[in-house]
């Protein structure tokens, strides 16, 4: 695909920009411990923590999670663990 003048594109270009590849530590949610309070979702700077409507618990969209760790730090029941990502 040819590059556009000035890198001007159709909106939504950040959707194809999978920032999950920037991550060093990966948040793992312990579903048993999660109380579904939504603190992680409210504080996530990327909007990557979302509610699973079936379980009522929270999950992470790893395509965009940059691994900042705010969710793990702020989880009131410490249900999120940051684990070194290995490839």
């Amino acid at each position: 695909m040819k590059l556009s003048i000035g890198s001007v594109t159709k909106p939504g270009s950040t959707r194809i920009n999978k920032t999950g590849s920037w991550r060093t530590f990966k948040p793992i949610i312990d579903i048993e411990a999660c109380i579904g309070c939504g603190t992680c979702s409210m504080l996530c700077p990327e909007g990557s923590a979302y509610k699973d409507n079936v379980s009522g618990k929270y999950a992470i969209d790893y395509d965009y999670c940059k691994g900042c760790g705010i969710c793990a730090q702020e989880c009131p029941v410490k249900a999120i663990e940051m684990v070194m990502e290995e490839k």
């Binding site: 556009s4 000035g6 890198s7 001007v8 909106p11 270009s13």
Partner: peptide, 15 residues
């Protein structure tokens, strides 16, 4: 050659 309108939104300043 390309310009912003409400009918045809574009992103300027992408990464």
């Amino acid at each position: 050659i390309q310009y912003l309108t409400t009918e045809n939104p574009l992103s300027f300043g992408t990464i």
